[in-house]
């Protein structure tokens, strides 16, 4: 039971990461590798603010606001321009990789490569029958759970959310109908940056953080988004949850060192046998065949 609960909590965090990746990938088709760098930067921004005397809660919001701004800047000065001249997937991918390297190395140069922690002392625990949940895990459950609910309420019930779904579905048609696609792209990058900031700070509170930790986490996000369903926002949540459970089981029943191999083996299995992921959508036969 403890293994399942740990997997579910970890899955919730991966679900938010997957959602953050999918938020940019689905409407813009940009493979936002630089999200990994934002994941690395967020806790450092919060930590630095705390070192300068800012109280913890505003410092955390500063960290999240920092990743929001950075993500929007990446769209404004990089992906938006490449998209403007009909750049290919490779151009977006390589430039995002460049941004990832720049931000991560900047973080390493400024704050060093040593692991750091956001909380002090031993974490308090709660016993629920045979299951133990730490205080940080409660924060993860509450923070990630709330984020997912708020996002889907926004997506389902607001007019911007409707436009956003339109952008994800058919950006050309949305532009032809007179909607401001450029603005919606900023929304995608901004929310994605803020989401990764929240997930990163929750993770940092639980297990600490260091400058090069973002890429491996981003890879989990990508795997979650792909196995969940690459045409669906909710798929990323399902994929993240499933991945959390699988990783937890592998860690417990096999060995922790094989977790990454298991994760990518799962990705390979999905890509080869069900490339559209768990949640698929009905389409014309030829479109389904292509996907």
């Amino acid at each position: 039971m403890q293994v399942f609960v740990n997997g579910a909590i970890s899955g919730l965090e991966i679900a938010v990461l997957g959602l953050a990746f999918q938020l940019v990938y689905l409407p813009t088709k940009v493979f936002h590798i630089a999200l990994g760098a934002l994941y690395s930067a967020a806790p450092f921004l919060a930590w630095e603010a705390m070192q300068q005397g800012v109280p913890p809660v505003p410092a955390i919001f500063l960290g999240i606001f920092g990743t929001f701004l950075l993500s929007v800047a990446m769209e404004a000065f990089n992906h938006g321009r490449i998209a403007g001249r009909q750049g290919s997937f490779a151009a977006h991918f390589v430039s995002s990789l460049g941004l990832y390297i720049i931000v991560v190395q900047f973080v390493a140069v400024v704050w060093g490569n040593e692991p750091k922690v956001l909380r002090s002392g031993i974490d308090a625990v709660t016993f629920i029958g045979p299951v133990v949940v730490t205080n940080s895990e409660w924060w993860t459950i509450g923070g990630c759970g709330l984020l997912i609910v708020v996002f889907f309420v926004w997506l389902r019930f607001t007019s911007v959310g409707l436009q956003f779904r339109g952008l994800a579905d058919n950006p050309s048609e949305l532009a032809l109908r007179g909607y401001n696609v450029r603005q919606l792209r900023y929304v995608a990058f901004g929310i994605s940056g803020a989401m990764i900031g929240v997930a990163s700070i929750l993770g940092a509170r639980d297990a600490g953080f260091w400058s090069h930790g973002g890429l491996s986490i981003l890879l989990l996000a990508i795997v979650a988004a792909i196995i969940g369903g690459r045409f669906s926002f909710f798929g990323a949540v399902i994929g993240g949850f499933l991945l959390g459970l699988v990783r937890s089981e592998v860690e417990w029943y096999i060995e922790a060192k094989w977790i990454d191999a298991a994760t990518f083996a799962l990705l390979l299995i999905f890509l080869l046998f069900r490339p559209a992921g768990i949640i698929t959508r009905r389409a014309r036969l030829e479109a389904e065949a292509e996907s």
Partner: peptide, 21 residues
């Protein structure tokens, strides 16, 4: 030396970005 290693990668990042544009 450690800073030089970080700077080396950062230069690569800038070059990737600049070349793509």
């Amino acid at each position: 030396i450690t800073l030089a290693a970080e700077m080396r990668l950062m230069i690569y990042g800038f070059l990737l970005l600049a070349f793509m544009h």
